[in-house]
């Protein structure tokens, strides 16, 4: 009798009592924890550790404190490239924030119109570029903008803007903006979809109430819809930030590791790659590579923290 009660109680206990760490929980968690720790967290920590060391020709490593960071930020051989990459990266991000989010918001507004015919067809097609590899997109636009093929020029001429065309990817002044816009073109689907979902989430009654209250289309947008999707715009911004400050593929595909012309399209991702693997005569340096990676990590963490504590808290999420 007492046997039966004891075994009957046990399963409930193993679920609810917090003080024990049951075997089956360990079994369920172990594979994920092991792979994640070994191939994600450990490398990140090891990279940070490595950024405090220098290596010599023999391959031996010495602890060097903050010397690498000092070199990165002040040594003329490094700092020029670093600040240049950071500045370019900020431009890259700014173009995304302004153009990508504005177009994404606009498209989402159009797609969320009530009873829009063909809405799902538009959605599917507009999201298509986002699904393709950045590398492939890079090559596609390289061909599109290639003056040799001249297709972009031809199309621009057709709408009377032919004289406006230039070798945008090849000029120092326009290459970075052009590449940023190519990236915007590819990823505009993400803000579009997220904002679209947020807009759908706003109940129709609320918009009807605003109309009865006398709000015109612009006021409904400005006073009702926009405030209600601000949290989504926040999420979009931080996703864009992280993706932009760790971008690499597009510039590598279009411009190679040297991010030309004259480093005008160099961003932190390409700078990291060159530092780590070397280029032309410069040999790669794992420790300096780790230093650049750590700097990028700090920048991304700063962004995430600003978002979590400065932005997200202020953006009240609304349940309807």
């Amino acid at each position: 009798m007492s046997d039966i009660t004891a075994s009957g109680v046990q399963p409930a206990e193993s679920v609810s009592v917090r003080s024990r760490f049951p075997v089956h929980v360990a079994v369920f968690l172990a594979p994920a924890l092991a792979i994640y720790t070994l191939f994600s967290i450990y490398p990140l920590i090891d990279t940070i550790r490595l950024s405090f060391y220098t290596g010599d020709e023999s391959g031996a490593r010495h602890f060097a404190g903050l010397a690498n960071f000092y070199t990165l930020l002040t040594d003329p051989a490094w700092s020029g490239h670093f600040w240049n990459a950071l500045r370019n990266n900020l431009v890259f991000f700014a173009v995304h924030m302004v153009v990508q989010n504005a177009i994404g918001l606009g498209l989402a507004m159009l797609l969320s119109l009530p009873r829009l015919t063909g809405g799902s067809v538009y959605r599917t097609l507009l999201f298509l570029p986002t699904m393709l590899s950045v590398v492939i997109i890079g090559f596609i636009w390289q061909l599109m903008l290639n003056p040799l093929w001249g297709i972009a020029e031809k199309i621009l001429s057709a709408v009377g803007l032919g004289s406006f065309f230039g070798p945008w990817l090849g000029q120092e002044t326009t290459a970075l903006i052009t590449i940023s816009l190519i990236s915007v073109w590819q990823f505009v689907g993400i803000p579009m979809m997220l904002i679209y979902a947020a807009l759908l989430n706003i109940p129709d009654d609320l918009l009807d109430a605003a109309i009865v209250d006398g709000a015109g289309p612009f006021s409904v947008f400005w006073f009702v819809r926009l405030p209600l999707i601000l949290p989504t715009l926040g999420v979009v911004s931080i996703l864009t930030f992280v993706a932009n400050f760790n971008a690499f593929d597009l510039i590598y595909a279009i411009k190679g590791a040297l991010a030309g012309p004259n480093f005008s399209t160099d961003i932190l991702g390409t700078f990291f790659y060159r530092t780590f693997f070397g280029y032309q005569l410069q040999v790669g340096s794992p420790t300096m590579g780790a230093t650049v990676a750590t700097a990028m990590l700090i920048i991304i963490l700063l962004g995430v923290l600003i978002y979590l504590f400065g932005v997200q808290r202020r953006l009240q999420r609304h349940t309807f």
Binding site: P43, D46, L50, N246, F272, A290, A293, T294
Partner: peptide
């Protein structure tokens, strides 16, 4: 991004 741990 796990990419930043690439060196290690």
């Amino acid at each position: 991004p796990i990419r930043l741990g690439s060196v290690s």
